[in-house]
Design a protein around this nucleic acid. Structure first.
Lengths: 281, 281
DNA sequence: CGCCAGATTGACACGGCTCAAGCGGTGTGG
DNA sequence: CCACACCGCTTGAGCCGTGTCAATCTGGCG
């Protein structure tokens, strides 16, 4: 298939318990239910589908339910850089809530499904269930933290450490949303995409992966990554999960994480109390 | 001087009209006044002052009023990376509103002054003047956009284009807050700091600056950068100001920007209407 | 005057890029 | 069912941008 289809039937609303949206920790039961109900319009999207054209007007929040997507920029000389890797449970374009267009494009990397929430619908949700707004605000800050970490990685880590770090991050993120089986997960990215996400070339990603393989740390087969030695891999690249702000995730979803990635004593600030208004459209 | 002093006297509150906080466009007159009043506690900080220790508990929002600061991470092997350059008018640690600690440190690069707003005070402000909360939310998204752009720069631009791009960005940002005189501005960063912000080495920053100088594009004297050929410099590195989201800045402050940096037709979504609660502490 | 941090420059090494060829799986049309 | 095309993976050879190391220079300051 090449296009996309709109469906509102089975399931007729997003089950957070199934996709385990990252925002969980901020949400009381009522808000969670309301959010699930709001996510009732889905688009089945095939690999390669452009979710959002570069610089295009946007007016709906997209939540990735299934499949992987990338957020990218194309530079003058044609070079591409992938500024975000999106996996199930991620919100694709948080900035749509405040700005009417972004300066990036978004494409599906694999077949998948997105929930589409028109801005008006999100605003209504904010009005009736304020914790949802707070949660989305928090999510923006989490994204911020993740961007800083990847930038640090690109700027200061060697290619091998950089790739290793990415794999560590993905394992943790995918485990949270239940998309990993043990230390292994489906991995639809081509080496070229990895290169564009880490500021490298596909050729060098290839050589780097070979080294990691040779060291017995990871293996890749059939679009599936397996981390054979989590301790070794995370030690190698100095992976520390703090920046993922796992404290934003409701405890019931933070199970079976790789060792050393507990959210420790960091606190999420919550318990909404005061009221303030938010912008509509 | 080596420490810092608390002063609440002249001026006894922050004049937005003087520092031109980026958040202006979101704020009505009443909110703006309230925000100014809330910024009544200042710290005079000297160059080198640690505003926030790495991984330290934080509970106050800091607004940089005068001077430059950097947000940094130190990696295992001792390498440093500067994840943000902060100039007057910037908010230093937006994430303090949602998390109780960050994974970065913050240091003053020059002597300066910061306004300190305890979390409780910010929350009270949110309660009484909701547009302030919306403005801070927007600011977080702007920061996001800036991070993506710099990451793109580090990942895909050559050293020279990268440095050029940084200088372009700084000119625009400093003009907005009235800290540039024409195409020239004070520049307290050492070449080592620039290197740490762009993922390079100090030596190479030096060589790169020499090239830019040799091309007649910029010059540096007495800790002051002058851009002699804005068109040439911005063309060279493909600088486009969209990512700075200048539409978040009240129009009265967006004057005298370098050519080509108008905020064009992009809209900021505003007019707060609905209400939702926000977290305290 | 001596000291020191930062800027500058040179010589050299190396990680990662470029170019190019070959390989394997998979989908497709004859 | 085969032949072919295509895409992504793999590997090699050589180059170049950037890092490393180290020395010198400069201006500010006690």
């Amino acid at each position: 298939m090449t296009g996309s289809a709109v469906s509102t039937d089975t399931p007729n609303c997003l089950k957070l318990s199934a996709t385990r949206l990252w925002i969980s920790a901020d949400l009381d039961a009522a808000s969670r239910t309301a959010l699930e109900r709001a996510c009732s319009t889905f688009r089945e999207v095939s690999a390669g589908t452009e979710l959002l054209g570069s610089d295009a007007h946007a007016d709906a929040l997209h939540v990735l339910v299934d499949g992987w997507a990338v957020r990218y920029k194309i530079m003058e000389q044609g070079a591409r850089f992938i500024s975000a890797l999106l996996v199930p449970g991620d919100i694709c374009n948080l900035d749509v809530l405040r700005f009417d267009r972004g300066d990036y494009g978004m494409t599906m990397v694999s077949d998948g499904r997105v929930a589409v929430l028109p801005r008006a619908r999100v605003n209504a949700l904010f009005a009736s269930h304020s914790p949802v707004a707070v949660a989305l605000w928090s999510l923006g800050l989490v994204e911020n933290s993740m961007l800083m970490e990847r930038m640090t990685s690109i700027a200061r880590r060697s290619a091998m450490h950089c790739v290793a770090h990415l794999l560590c991050e993905l394992l943790v993120r995918l485990r949270v949303v239940g998309k990993a089986e043990g230390n292994s997960f489906e991995f639809p990215l081509t080496q070229e995409l990895v290169a564009d996400a880490l500021g490298m070339t596909a050729v060098h990603v290839n050589r780097t992966m070979r080294s990691l393989r040779a060291m017995g740390l990871v293996s890749v087969q059939n679009r599936r990554v397996t981390i054979h030695d989590w301790a070794g891999l995370s030690m190698l690249c100095g992976f520390r999960a703090e920046y993922l702000r796992l404290e934003t995730i409701a405890e019931e979803y933070v199970r079976e994480l790789p060792p050393g990635t507990a959210s420790s004593e960091k606190r999420l600030l919550r318990n909404p109390v005061e009221r303030f208004s938010i912008p509509s459209l």
